[in-house]
């Protein structure tokens, strides 16, 4: 049996997780009025915390959430059309640019030496790798937040 008074973590363990307590802690508790008092203090504190009324919002949360859901679902089709239109426009613009500058690009590639081409490709690949790494990291972080 422990002759010294219990430390605070043991007192709290006895108060809230008695089944996990070591045998000598339980034995000490059976004979020490001071430690018993300390356990009672924590139990009392716990009871007082439980008696605090639950906080409440000053409005009907479910009603407001459902209203927002309805509004956002109404907005969605318009937003979808806008996104599709934007994608189509971007496609057309890229096509136009490629058609206009294809000759210039071919000449530019032919005019550069192999070393400078390799240099440009290396830089482009490095930037691509950094971007992919960043995207993967943020994706992993988001998935971790909802890992259920």
């Amino acid at each position: 049996m422990k002759n010294k008074h219990l430390i605070d973590s043991e007192i709290q363990q006895f108060a809230f997780d008695e089944s996990e307590c070591e045998k000598d802690v339980v034995e000490h508790m059976s004979s020490c009025s001071l430690c018993k008092q300390r356990v009672e203090d924590y139990v009392l504190l716990s009871t007082s915390i439980k008696s605090i009324p639950d906080p409440a919002l000053g409005f009907d949360l479910s009603k407001r959430v459902l209203m927002q859901l309805e509004t956002s679902s109404k907005k969605k089709p318009l937003l979808d059309y806008f996104v599709y239109a934007l994608i189509t426009l971007s496609g057309l613009l890229v096509g136009f640019c490629v058609a206009c500058f294809s000759l210039f690009c071919i000449n530019w590639f032919k005019g550069n030496s192999t070393v400078s081409m390799a240099f440009i490709i290396c830089i482009a690949l490095s930037i691509l790798m950094i971007l992919i790494n960043d995207i993967m990291k943020s994706h992993r972080r988001k998935m971790k937040m909802l890992k259920f």
Binding site: H5, L34, Q37, R38, E40, D41, L44, L45, S48, I52
Partner: peptide, 26 residues
Amino acid sequence: VLGNSNSQVDSHILRKEKHQIIASEI
């Protein structure tokens, strides 16, 4: 608190706690 052996007084204080006081301390 332990050394002063004021546990009975402390316990009395705890018993007197109103939930507003605990809520504000939390």
